[in-house]
Design a binder for these strands. Structure first.
Length: 259
DNA sequence: ATGGCAAATTGAATTTGA
């Protein structure tokens, strides 16, 4: 099974890019975040014509929204709500015996202080909630993918020192992400192949004059696997060149292969 | 709390992202 996760930043605006990705990589499962559309207006037919005849969608107007697209059936679809908000940040479904969790973690705003910034408080609470929830789940073959909006390693950001105080790389976020990862002993499927000593990014700001030259990126998008399927992982790839496809999302696709 | 941009919504300006 080949699975790709991509924060698409408006699915309707980027259908041609999805078609390009599909023609190049032929994923079996494509998980999208920030689809920014209600379910009724989700481009279901166009995506079905690309081979994704099975779709699980949790969308809302303007913001957020997640979807799982699959060539194979998706069973037991659930849309989970966190922090008493129905803001379409988590959808799950079973594909070929594996539970796929697709997340869009809150960005957290600018100020890395929960007392001064309700968005950062929401992000931290969200992380605590999902961690507690997974800790109570039984150990079943699962993948967890999505825009987790945290770059945990020093090599996941262009400058560890300069980003220590920037939301997405603060110690409190990294610590909470580690606790989440420990909830089911999730394996970082991407860093299994692209080792932690190597710089690796999945997001570059729209504000950079030349994203490729300045290369001030962060690894915000992740794929985790439960230990029970770790031995089935055969490779991982970040599709860096997709940052240059037009009109570009500020995130690029991340891919993992399983036998 | 900044910003060189971008998207969605609502009607040129605002909100959100990270």
């Amino acid at each position: 099974m080949r699975i790709v996760t991509w924060n698409i930043n408006s699915v309707r605006l980027r259908l041609d890019l999805i078609a390009e990705l599909v023609s190049q990589l032929r994923p079996d499962v494509l998980c999208l975040q920030e689809i920014k559309v209600v379910n009724e207006l989700f481009p279901s037919t166009a995506l079905s014509e690309l081979g994704f005849t099975h779709q699980a969608v949790a969308g809302m107007k303007s913001y957020n929204g997640v979807a799982i697209l699959s060539r194979q059936p998706i069973d037991n679809i659930k849309v989970n709500h966190w922090c008493d908000k129905e803001d379409c940040r988590h959808i799950q479904g079973d594909i070929d015996g594996i539970t796929v969790h697709n997340f869009y973690v809150p960005a957290g705003g600018d100020i890395p202080d929960p007392d001064l910034n309700v968005k950062f408080a929401h992000k931290l609470k969200f992380l605590d909630s999902v961690t507690d929830w997974f800790a109570k789940q039984s150990d079943h073959p699962a993948l967890l993918v999505g825009d987790l909006n945290i770059a945990p390693l020093e090599t996941d950001v262009w400058s560890h020192k300069q980003l220590l105080d920037v939301v997405s790389h603060t110690p409190i976020e990294v610590e909470k992400m580690a606790a989440w990862q420990q909830s089911l002993n999730w394996v970082d499927a991407v860093r299994k192949f692209i080792t932690p000593d190597l710089k690796l990014y999945t997001w570059w700001s729209y504000r950079a004059g030349d994203w490729n030259a300045s290369d001030r990126g962060r690894r915000l998008d992740h794929i985790w696997a439960t230990p029970s399927i770790e031995h089935r992982l055969t490779g991982a790839m970040v599709i860096r060149e997709a940052r240059g496809w037009q009109p570009a999302s500020d995130h690029v696709p991340v891919m993992v292969d399983l036998v």
